[in-house]
Design a protein around this nucleic acid. Structure first.
Length: 918
RNA sequence: GGGCGAUUAGCUCAGGGGUAGAGCGCCACGUUGACAUCGUGGAGGUCGGUGGUUCGAAACCACCAUCGCCCACCA
């Protein structure tokens, strides 16, 4: 083995070997366990969030596989309609052409080419992360089978009346020229203005004032509204105003929606371009006038001077015209929630179009119940609140998109515009007995990407065919995802799963936090703070990192700041930490909170942890080359480490069962480093080196070394698959374990009925003894190599017995030169002191120890003990405590008090002796 | 406006009605035959504030402050 751990030399080799052997596929006859991957965008790149999520899923998958489950981690990618179309359109733009120039067919062909060219990247990245997905089942949302599933669902929902087509206001993206669902619109506060316009009364007698943030929409106004109880306007209701510029007479109506307190208490109503106004219009039978084109320019419904103007140019012109007419009362600065398209960033327009909708309430109801009655459990539990909140107020889902890349809506129109829905044109013709003479034209639109994603848990398993996979792996065990797509995806999968499979798609939903940068900022290209998980695995030099962060930026002016920040944070680029270190870091960070700050310091620590494990294995292998047959005669240390291993195994099972990978990682780290390496390996050295140890004793220790390590590797494997496999290949034969790969070995279980006797207490005593001596040594600045004589005073028979039995350990691990016993009443030489209960360890000072330093050291200890004693005294002096606290707590407190008193007396005695030396 | 979350060591974070923890960083000593990507020892916190419940609160409750997120139709 190399002297230090070199991840780059093992990871890719091992992954290829696992994959070639088909070990990721479901196997055996255990209980099925299935996780479907949240499909990343096929043309995208995995980011830190993916890597984090994939680490969690892979850890769960590997754990279950080792537990003997018939395990499937289902991989795949998403066609990601808008996102992918935009990417390809940008490419075309760079080539000097465009989507429209190419035409639909050629464009879609071009996107497929792009998908083929770039789609392999996700797979390669997943492989580098060690993801044990079953590649033989890789799926893409636009595969034939998944497309069939989409059509099937569409047709069935339509036939049931749960999908309908309607002309309504939708969120319109005037840049992308498509409708958006509510979820794809993000509103944020932006500085704006509130313009107060006067609308003259038709009676010629005065005016009303309306306030608006959208002056241009006044061209489509069809009423003015006031609150029914607003006395100021009571006598105006029913009268008309004359809409300036347009000249249209529109009524003044009364509606509860109006807030009398706001502005003048008088609202212009534009049913064609505002969601609230649309509803008011419906209540009052107002005409709906659409004044915009697809580009959000003004159309022919407006006075000639305004036709063809962009909405924002029109706004300026309207304001100017009102001003010149003397009808602009005032202009106020105002903060407005501005709705923008998630994808294009354009301000979204409410726009009247024909779209397809899913009638969602009938689907939502069972989906709410499934979480209410516990058939689906959110982890952490409180995310169910977020889910309910949305589901109770859910709106019909607009599923049509005016894009070219996606699942084309399976609907056809005849010459009269009558719509027919079917799985194919042939099916439509057959269903309706259309002859060849009947012309049918397919709907131009495609479906929202999330429509196909909603079917993912069953479409990937072969639905609508009733496949074996579907029977075996539906429902899945757990969905692992971020809270940002609970509405987009999780809720919709639950609805569709219940509707079409008659059962929930998964039993649990594990919601993890979002990975942020070291300052808590969201990672994004434009902030220039993105980390590529592969750069953490392979390392990256500064120039390459700068290049990656500054090319392809949407806004070039951000470049200098990004470059500066990157140089400051990574003056030497990023080191290669290896996949296992990255995975362990993710696991350790997988806490229950919302946000996770990715701290580079931690990955370095876990890289060191890998190295620690590597070197512990080297030590074990060095000492087990000639291991013989049999179990030998285990020492107290051997039994102790096995007992500690059992506790660790139990903890890891418990934590993984509760999705607490952070706690599992912590338990594993603690055991590996601080118990196995710090103590057990050290305690094994005297046995293996000492010629006085019998062959049976040495064998017992060698066996324990190799067996505990072998178990530990299996225990670590779900989190660190590569290094554990690499080491295991060498360790397993020596541990007498057969098997081709660690990934198919059983996960460790607690040794049933193990009896470790007094080994644990013995070794804890040994540790306390050594720690006492080390403390003196450390604080007196005595070199670690210097062996010290130790005198025991107030030793019980048990102490003397242990000192004799473990003399070798104390001498070699504790660097103790000699152990002598002193009678209780004898006068010891001037010494430094360590306390172990009654037992007093004395290290004679002659030539070694500075009296003043020892006095300071004991003084600090004394202060601490005195403070503890005072607290214990106060507690026990409190009658209420003694009477009300549980008896065992009181007993414990009394014991503590006694201990403190004893220690205090001893320390005082020692301090007095030191005083005599002055 | 409604909802959720966070506040613990210099930093990143666990924990949890009775003794305050880890990693990193820091200080000191040290290359002993697994490991300097290391070893040993140490320093460092009145657990955001105020009140309440309790024999006992950092933990439970209420309110407050600060920060963050999600949802929502005051133009």
């Amino acid at each position: 083995m190399e002297k230090s751990y070199q991840p780059e030399q093992i990871e890719q080799r091992l992954y290829a070997w696992w994959e070639e052997n088909g070990w990721f596929a479901p196997r055996g006859d255990g209980d099925p366990y299935c996780i479907v991957i949240p499909p990343p965008n096929v043309t995208g790149v995995l980011h830190m969030g993916h890597a984090f999520q994939d680490t969690i899923m892979d850890a769960l998958t590997r754990y279950q596989r080792m537990q003997g489950s018939r395990t499937l981690w289902q991989p795949g990618t998403d066609h990601a309609g808008i996102a992918t179309q935009m990417v390809v359109e940008r490419l075309l733009g760079a080539e000097g052409t465009s989507r429209r120039e190419l035409g639909r067919e050629a464009f879609v062909e071009r996107v497929w080419q792009w998908k083929e060219a770039s789609g392999g990247r996700i797979g390669e990245q997943l492989r580098r992360l060690g993801a044990s997905v079953d590649w033989s089942r890789d799926r893409f949302t636009m595969d034939k089978g998944l497309s069939d599933a989409v059509k099937e669902v569409f047709v069935r929902l339509y036939d049931e009346g749960l999908i309908y087509r309607g002309k309504r206001l939708v969120n319109w993206d005037p840049v992308l020229h498509t409708a958006l669902s509510d979820l794809e619109v993000l509103s944020a506060d932006e500085d704006a203005h509130l313009w107060h316009f006067r609308y003259p009364l038709a009676s010629g007698d005065g005016h009303v004032t309306v306030a608006t943030t959208r002056p241009e929409t006044m061209l489509g106004d069809t009423a003015v509204a006031v609150h029914p109880d607003d006395e100021r306007y009571a006598d105006l209701v029913g009268q008309d105003v004359v809409l300036p510029i347009v000249g249209r007479r529109i009524p003044i109506i009364a509606d509860d929606y109006v807030e009398s307190e706001f502005g003048s208490g008088c609202v212009k109503i534009t049913p064609g371009h505002d969601f609230n106004d649309y509803e008011i219009g419906e209540r009052h039978g107002l005409p709906v006038i659409n004044i915009l084109t697809d580009d959000a320019a003004l159309n022919d419904e407006v006075p000639e001077a305004y036709r063809g103007l962009d909405r924002f140019d029109a706004r300026e012109k309207i304001i100017a015209e009102f001003d010149s007419l003397g009808l602009l009362e005032k202009t106020e600065p105002y903060v407005r929630k501005t709705p923008r398209s998630d994808r294009s960033g354009a301000i979204v327009e409410p726009y009247l179009t024909d779209q397809w909708y899913v009638r969602i309430e009938p689907l939502a109801k069972p989906a709410i119940e499934a979480v209410e009655d516990g058939r689906i459990r959110f982890v952490p539990e409180n995310w169910s609140k977020t889910y309910f909140e949305w589901m109770y107020n859910i709106q019909d889902w607009c599923i049509s998109r005016q894009l070219w890349w996606g699942h084309r809506i399976p609907a056809w129109y005849d010459a009269d515009g009558k719509v027919y829905v079917g799985r194919s044109e042939a099916e439509v013709r057959e269903r309706h007995a259309f002859g060849d003479a009947v012309e049918l034209r397919q709907d131009e639109d495609v479906l929202d990407t999330w429509f196909s994603s909603a079917l993912w848990p069953f479409s990937t398993l072969g639905w609508p065919d009733r496949t074996r996979s579907l029977r075996e792996f539906y429902p899945g065990a757990v969905l692992v995802t971020g809270f940002d797509i609970i509405f987009f995806w999780v809720a919709r999968m639950i609805m569709m799963g219940l509707k079409f499979m008659g059962d929930v798609p998964f039993r649990e939903v594990y919601i993890h936090g979002l990975i942020r940068d070291q300052d808590g900022q969201k990672m994004s290209k434009s902030k220039g703070n993105v980390l590529d998980p592969l750069d953490l695995i392979d390392g990256v030099n500064l120039d390459t990192l700068l290049e990656k962060r500054t090319t392809g930026l949407m806004q070039d002016h951000l470049k200098p700041a990004i470059e500066k920040a990157t140089r400051a944070q990574f003056p030497d680029g990023i080191q290669a930490y290896g996949c296992d270190a990255l995975r362990f870091t993710f696991a350790a960070l997988a806490t229950t909170g919302r946000d996770i700050r990715f701290d580079l310091g931690r990955i370095e620590g876990y890289r060191n942890f890998c190295n620690k494990l590597w070197n512990a294995a080297r030590y074990v292998l060095m000492n087990t080359e000639s291991i013989g047959e049999g179990t030998g005669e285990p020492s107290a240390a051997d039994l102790w480490i096995r007992a500690r291993l059992d506790l660790t195994i139990e903890a890891v099972h418990r934590h993984i069962g509760q999705y607490r990978l952070d706690l599992a990682a912590q338990a594993l780290y603690e055991f590996t480093w601080h118990e196995f390496c710090d103590w057990y390996l050290e305690l094994s050295k005297p046995v293996l080196r000492d010629d006085a140890a019998t062959a049976a004793e040495q064998l017992g220790t060698r066996r324990t070394l190799v067996e505990v390590l072998e178990s530990l590797l299996r225990l670590l494997h779900p989190l660190m698959p590569f290094i554990t496999e690499e080491i295991w290949q060498q360790v397993a034969p020596r541990a007498g374990v057969e098997g081709e790969t660690i990934m198919l070995q059983p996960f460790p279980q607690v040794a049933a009925g193990a009896d470790y006797g007094t080994a644990e207490a013995d070794i804890e005593w040994v540790k306390a003894f050594i720690l006492g001596v080390r403390q003196i040594r450390g604080e007196m600045d005595i070199p670690p190599g210097k062996a010290l004589p130790v005198i025991m005073q107030h030793a019980t028979d048990a102490d003397e017995d242990r000192a004799a039995r473990f003399a070798m350990l104390l001498e070699q691990v504790g660097r103790v030169a000699s152990i002598a016993t002193l009678e209780a009443d004898a006068e010891p030489p001037a010494s430094a002191t360590a306390l172990m209960g009654e037992l007093r360890l004395l290290v004679p000072m002659a030539g070694l120890i500075d009296v003043a330093a020892e006095r300071v050291r004991l003084g600090k200890q004394r202060d601490k003990v005195a403070a503890d004693l005072a607290k214990a005294d106060a507690k026990l002096g409190n009658e209420k405590f003694v009477n009300n606290a549980p008896p065992e707590v009181v007993t414990q407190e009394r014991a503590r008090k006694a201990e403190f008193e004893r220690n205090l007396a001893q320390l005082d005695e020692q301090l007095a002796k030191l005083a005599e030396l002055d």
